[in-house]
């Protein structure tokens, strides 16, 4: 069995968001780049499954659609423990491009399980996993908070409003994962970092998927008014403010 984990290269989640070129472009100056947090959890779970599989999962591959600049993030995924990596050399202009490029690669290199994070912390599309499944005509399960494999049988927990469901699925399939899939993302060890340098990172030419959307202009939310402070001895005042001023109680 082979698992593919799709990873996005995103700004660190503490990044101060700024735009440039008349607010038409995200300002990448002095930005630290990371593996998209949900993708990192997906990779962690894929490695746990491989380690517990007694050899039936032979390989965990990571794939990224992006320019050369995303390679440090891909190397980090290798350092965490992925066996090999693929970079599809294209600008990830929108979800349609990313999913289209991924689908092109997977058609020629089939995997049993494809894992995608439920969202990316930059453009918040929540689209790539579902689009990819549709392009490949595969089943998809979204909001996956647990994924187990026993004797090649797949069991999935899907979070729903006010509860959860347990599902089974045939392979191949796409799992779109969220918090809970792994407890904490795995951190690369020193040995992992050394080994990552020798692991294969194959660069693949883009198939030329076209974007269907474009970002025209960005804007920051209006600044927030100052916080009204209430004395801790005067809780009644807070309740009155919420009732009379904010009218939310």
């Amino acid at each position: 069995m082979k698992i593919l984990v799709c990873i996005s290269n995103v700004p660190d989640t503490t990044t101060k968001i700024r735009f440039t070129d008349d607010d038409t472009r995200f300002d990448t100056a002095s930005v630290q780049w990371i593996i998209n947090p949900w993708d990192e959890l997906a990779l962690t779970r894929a490695l746990e499954l491989k380690e517990g599989s007694g050899g039936s999962i032979e390989k965990v591959t990571v794939v990224n659609v992006g320019p050369k600049e995303s390679e440090p993030t891909i190397r980090k995924a290798l350092a965490i423990g992925a066996d090999d990596a693929v970079r599809i050399d294209a600008e990830p202009l929108d979800a349609h491009v990313v999913a289209g490029e991924l689908a092109g690669h997977i058609r020629n290199n089939p995997y049993d399980i494809v894992l995608c994070g439920i969202d990316s912390s930059d453009y918040n599309g929540s689209l790539v996993g579902g689009m990819l499944a549709e392009l490949l005509d595969l089943p998809s399960v979204s909001s996956v908070s647990k994924l187990n494999i026993e004797n090649d049988e797949i069991t999935i927990n899907r979070e729903i409003d006010g509860g959860s469901e347990i599902l089974s699925t045939e392979t191949p399939f796409v799992a779109i994962v969220q918090k809970g899939i792994a407890l904490e993302p795995r951190i690369p060890s020193m040995r992992g970092i050394m080994m990552a340098r020798k692991k294969p990172l194959n660069v693949v030419e883009a198939a030329g998927a076209e974007p269907l959307t474009e970002f025209v202009r960005f804007e920051l939310p209006p600044p927030k008014a100052a916080c009204k402070m209430v004395d801790e001895e005067n809780i009644r005042e807070l309740v009155a403010l919420l009732h009379n001023e904010a009218k939310v109680l």
Binding site: N124, S126, L127, G130, S142, S143, L212
Partner: peptide, 24 residues
């Protein structure tokens, strides 16, 4: 809706209709 169900279905429908998708 931009909820779990909407996020699960919108991308699949967008591909089928060859439609650009904007979420949230």
């Amino acid at each position: 809706s931009h909820n779990a169900t909407g996020k699960a279905l919108a991308p699949r429908v967008a591909v089928r209709l060859k439609a650009g998708a904007v979420t949230g």
